[in-house]
Computed example of a mutant assay.
Amino acid sequence: MTQTDIWAPLDIEAEGVGGPEELTARLRDMGPERLAQLLTEERGLVFRGFGVTPDHLDGVLDLLLPNRLAYVHGNSPRTKVGSNVYTSTEYPQEFTISMHNEMSYAHAWPARLAFYCQIQPGSGGATPVVDAALWLDSLDAEVRDAFAGGVRYVQNLHDGYGLGKSWQDTFETTSRQDVEAFLEPTGAQWEWKADGGLRVVSIRPATTRHPATGAEVWFNQADQWHPAGLGDDTAAALAQILPEDDLPQNVTFADGSPIPAEYVAQIRDRGLEHAVDVDWRTGDLLLIDNILLAHGRRPFTGERRVLVAMSD
């Protein structure tokens, strides 16, 4: 791919004075079928210059995401701030968040994500996005072949106190029965532990195909769930506290064999290498196809408040 061939999301900019009303009118004129077609063709759409405020956000999201989903079984730290609208992440701002497709570890995942910039960062803080088919193609054949059998995810969710997320926050309920009803059709195995925590084990494929285009894409979070993805110092510190299989989250190959750290580094680095940054200004929105595009986050300074919502 040459420099002139680099893909980027499609920018859709306000005309004239713009305003949120212009955006909602243009989305209504486009209609849901054309919006779906355009998103599949472009993979990502950036809406700039419309000055969307929090007061107008619900109306815009209703058009971009016809069926907003709750972040149930999500593993990232977030705060719910509206009707199935969440902070995009509360991961420390000095760190990069590597590329991933949202909830690719789960039995079902959102088809679309919409990000909204309420407060632009002082510096940095872009949302990088990468073509997930390109990401797959960029990996060495040895790595792709090793993952052909899929991956095994392990979650250890505490009962309100401990490392990582609690099962109550993860499943947005305090009812064990509700959790079991959610997990029953997913093919996961689970057990309630003596300390009140929950252990969930799921075997998932490492790739998937887009339902409309048929494109095969890299679609797992092995690099984010693997101890090597934490960095040497953090991984070493956790190893002093917990055995690897008791970490808040961990991943192996589907047969339980370990994933080499060098594979994890290659997956992480190639995803970031091929990513395109979407820089934020207050009021911007980014809509992505969650199968065709993976996303992450660059480090930043300042406040940076980006919200996210998702739909099937």
Rank of each mutant, 00 (worst) to 15 (best):
M1D: 12
E13M: 11
G18P: 05
E21I: 05
E21W: 06
E21R: 12
E22F: 03
T24V: 15
R26Q: 14
M30P: 04
R34Q: 12
Q37R: 15
L38F: 09
T40D: 04
E41T: 12
L45Q: 06
F50P: 02
G51F: 08
G51E: 11
P54F: 04
D55T: 14
L57Q: 10
D62E: 14
L63N: 05
L65W: 02
P66C: 03
N67F: 04
N67C: 01
A70R: 10
A70H: 05
Y71H: 13
H73C: 02
P77N: 09
T87I: 06
T87M: 11
Q93F: 12
E94P: 00
T96M: 02
I97G: 06
I97L: 14
S98V: 12
M99W: 01
N101F: 00
M103V: 10
Y105G: 06
H107Y: 12
R112D: 04
L113R: 07
L113E: 03
F115H: 00
Q118D: 14
I119W: 03
Q120S: 15
P121G: 11
G122Q: 14
G124S: 06
G124I: 07
A126Q: 13
V129W: 05
A132W: 02
W135G: 05
L136A: 01
S138K: 13
V143T: 14
D145T: 15
A146H: 12
A148D: 12
G150S: 13
Y153R: 08
Y153M: 03
V154N: 03
V154R: 10
H158Y: 06
D159R: 06
G160M: 02
K165V: 04
W167E: 10
D169W: 12
E172N: 03
E172P: 01
R176D: 06
E180H: 00
A181R: 05
Q189C: 08
W190K: 00
E191R: 14
K193T: 15
L198H: 01
R199P: 04
A206I: 07
A206H: 04
T208E: 01
H210N: 08
H210I: 04
G214F: 09
A215Q: 15
E216L: 13
E216Q: 15
V217S: 02
N220T: 09
Q221Y: 09
Q221G: 09
D223Q: 15
A228F: 02
L230F: 15
D232M: 02
D232R: 10
D232P: 01
T234V: 14
T234A: 11
T234G: 02
A235T: 05
A236V: 09
A237K: 12
L238H: 08
Q240I: 06
L242S: 11
L242W: 11
P243E: 10
E244V: 15
D245V: 11
P248V: 04
P248T: 11
T252Y: 07
D255I: 01
G256A: 09
S257A: 14
S257K: 11
P258S: 10
Q266P: 02
R268P: 04
R270I: 00
H274S: 05
A275S: 15
V276P: 00
D277G: 05
R281Q: 10
T282W: 03
T282S: 10
L286M: 11
L286F: 09
I288S: 01
A294S: 14
A294T: 04
A294C: 08
H295D: 06
R298N: 15
R304E: 07
R305C: 08
V306Q: 06
M310K: 09
D312S: 09
